[in-house]
Amino acid sequence: MKFLIIGDVIGRTGRNALKEFLPSLLKEEQPDLVIANGENSAGGFGITKKVYDELLSLGIDVITSGNHIWDKKEVLKFIDQEERLLRPANYPPSALGRGYGVYTKDNKKIAVINLMGRVFMGIPLDCPFRKFDEIYEELKDTVDYIIVDFHGEATSEKMAFGYYVDGRADIVFGTHSHVPTADEQILPKGTAYITDVGLTGAVHSVIGMKIEEPIQKFITGMPIKYEVATKGFLLNCLIVEIDETETKIKRVKLKKE
């Protein structure tokens, strides 16, 4: 099977980048399942029902998230009903929504698990390593593939997690930093891994936001409202192909100034 994994979609510019690049990418690669991190897809922070429906209409099958999932309070009204929208599974059990889902494609069952790191994230969550163990024990005999979006700040935590689940998860991809890493690889026991897929949004930006505001914040130390950048289109994604004999991984960057 072939999987197309798209990094953090940043606001309207990110959605427009999907419209620019995704149709031809889907035609060329013909993936069986498309996953995108959409926690920043509405105005750069959070997701709304309208934006969620728009992402699905573009050909995305599953939308993962992270620490910004609750930024648009509207999400509280619909996240429980939408099986294709995930929030990190290591939130407390009483949190709304679901941390993983199982999706059927070509008679194969694919589990997508959303987890969030704890290093530098400032949110008191359950241990993502132990949470994976718990979910894995529940799913391991009933699904054909397990894919994990590990949403985290620290590269060391992401890499440690990749090796921890090597041979159990089929794919581990990192999100949150919005900056792609060049370490896509097949780990020793067969798991396809990358520390961060990178953003889908504006070419000229600071992690997807207009350049001036972050510069001013760093210079002055004062709180400043960020706005989504609009200059150029950029799509970062990962393509993983798995068959009975081997796993192939490819990092793709598409850009239009």
Rank of each mutant, 00 (worst) to 15 (best):
V206S: 07
E213G: 06
V252S: 10
A89W: 06
T230R: 06
F129C: 00
M222Y: 08
E39M: 03
Y193H: 03
K189V: 08
I35Y: 10
K108E: 13
G167L: 08
V75N: 12
L187M: 13
E29C: 04
R98V: 03
T155I: 09
K109I: 09
T104L: 14
I5M: 12
Q216S: 09
V51C: 04
D32G: 15
D170I: 00
G221E: 06
I47G: 14
I147T: 05
F161Y: 13
G11C: 02
N90R: 00
D141Y: 05
F21N: 12
T48M: 02
E83P: 03
E212T: 13
V252M: 13
G198Y: 02
V203A: 12
L85I: 10
A17F: 09
K256I: 10
E241V: 04
A154K: 04
N40F: 11
E20V: 11
V102E: 02
A111P: 06
K231W: 05
D149Q: 13
C237Q: 09
L187G: 07
H68V: 07
K217G: 11
P92D: 05
L56R: 15
I249H: 13
E227D: 14
P214T: 14
K27Y: 11
H151G: 01
Y136M: 07
L199H: 10
R251A: 10
P223Y: 04
K158I: 02
E213M: 13
V102G: 01
T247Q: 13
T200L: 08
V102D: 06
K189S: 14
K108I: 05
Y163C: 05
G14H: 11
G101R: 06
K19A: 14
E28D: 15
K2V: 09
P92Y: 05
H68M: 14
K253G: 02
N67C: 03
D141V: 02
G101N: 00
P223F: 06
K225M: 07
P23L: 03
